[in-house]
Amino acid sequence: MNEVYISLGSNMGDKEETLRHAVQLLQRHEAVEVIKLSSIYETDPVGFTDQDVFLNMVVLVNTTLTAQEILEVCQEIEQELKRIRIIRWGPRTMDLDILLYNHDNIETETLIVPHARMHERAFVLVPLVEIAPELKHPLTNEALLTMLAQVGKEGVIQWKTIAGVSEFVHSES
């Protein structure tokens, strides 16, 4: 079984409902089990800053899928939730990024794991550390808690705590 940490973000439409729908779609996949969810965080945009704030979270899934297959599942979910790529780091209904796949280092034309910029981004590290404070970066072996201390938490505010996977996927915003 493979442990995969996935970051989810939305800043268009009903952001919370879009996050919930994405988690539901992950959970419905026959080869994916959503194990843990972080709280939802309201975060300032990074890169292209002239856009609405995001809601972000991180999920831990167990899967029998390869890294490439889980990437394809994530991209299918983005498409189902009407993701359109116009501006790099621009507004989006849904963004799913594979942060970690086991403790593997993967570099292909379509996938880099661990995520190339996760160690620079508080909106990724805060929810990731919330659900897995013991994790270390697979390439540097540095604790993610240490990386978060270096980056800081500016622009990341806890927006809503999540009681559990079942409660989140079966509740309404």
Rank of each mutant, 00 (worst) to 15 (best):
R117N: 10
P114V: 06
R83L: 00
N2S: 12
R20E: 12
L55M: 13
F54A: 06
A22L: 07
L145S: 15
V32F: 07
L26E: 07
T146P: 01
L8R: 02
L55Q: 06
D44W: 08
E172D: 08
S7A: 15
K153Q: 14
L111F: 10
I162T: 08
V23N: 04
T110C: 03
V129G: 02
I112V: 14
D52K: 12
N11F: 05
V169R: 11
E78V: 04
L96H: 09
R28L: 11
T108I: 08
Q75K: 15
A31L: 05
T49K: 12
E109K: 14
I157D: 10
G9K: 03
N102S: 04
H103C: 12
P138G: 00
Y101P: 01
P114L: 07
D50G: 01
T49R: 11
R117H: 14
V73G: 00
A143T: 04
M57E: 03
I131E: 05
T146I: 09
F123V: 03
S173Q: 01
T49I: 15
R28A: 09
R92P: 06
V169G: 01
V129I: 12
V129C: 04
V58P: 05
L81R: 13
R28M: 07
I112A: 00
Q27N: 12
S173F: 12
W159A: 03
M118G: 01
V165H: 05
S173H: 07
T18H: 00
V32E: 02
E78R: 03
I87K: 09
E142N: 09
H170D: 13
Q79L: 08
D95N: 10
A149K: 13
E107H: 13
I162R: 06
K153I: 07
E33S: 03
L144S: 03
L26V: 07
Q27S: 14
R28K: 14
R121W: 14
G13Q: 11
I106P: 05
V59R: 05
L99A: 04
H170L: 09
N141K: 15
L71T: 09
E154S: 14
A149T: 11
S38N: 00
I106Y: 04
G152S: 09
K82G: 00
S10L: 03
I70K: 05
S166D: 14
L148P: 02
I86A: 02
L96A: 06
V23E: 07
Y5A: 01
V46Q: 00
S39M: 13
L99G: 04
T66G: 11
I77K: 01
T110V: 03
P114I: 08
P138Y: 12
V46K: 02
F48Y: 15
H29Q: 06
E109W: 13
E69S: 13
F123C: 08
S39C: 12
T110L: 06
M147C: 06
N102A: 00
A132D: 00
Q68K: 10
E134D: 13
A163N: 11
V156D: 00
L81Y: 14
P138V: 01
E33I: 01
V156L: 07
I77F: 10
T43D: 10
E107Q: 14
L19Y: 11
E172Y: 14
R28V: 05
T140V: 07
A122G: 13
E134H: 15
D50S: 06
N2G: 10
A22D: 02
V156E: 00
K15I: 10
T66C: 09
M118K: 10
H137N: 07
